[in-house]
């Protein structure tokens, strides 16, 4: 995936660690030690798969961010 397509952004206050994103895009999402979703670098799925995972988040904790938000 090229950078100008944006990357997934995790809202850690909304993430409850349900693991839905890992079901749909296991090449892109993982859990950290606090069981919050994190985005692997580089993301290992195509954009459509990542969008499916973002839409699947039950607590609306994920969105597709722009390149400039990455820092």
């Amino acid at each position: 995936m090229s950078a100008d397509q944006g990357v997934a952004v995790v809202d850690r206050t909304r993430c409850v660690g349900s693991g839905m994103c890992i079901v749909y895009a296991p090449g892109t999402f993982a859990h950290d030690a606090e069981v919050k979703a994190v985005v692997l670098d580089p993301p290992g799925d195509d954009l459509e798969t990542i969008e499916t995972a973002i839409e699947a988040c039950p607590t609306s904790a994920l969105r597709l961010g722009g390149e400039q938000e990455e820092q």
Partner: peptide
């Protein structure tokens, strides 16, 4: 095509044991 359903519910109470 793969797409989330509500089979395990949703929201903050989504099924804890789904995996």
């Amino acid at each position: 095509p793969v797409k989330r359903s509500l089979g395990f519910g949703g929201g903050f109470h989504i099924c804890l044991g789904m995996h």
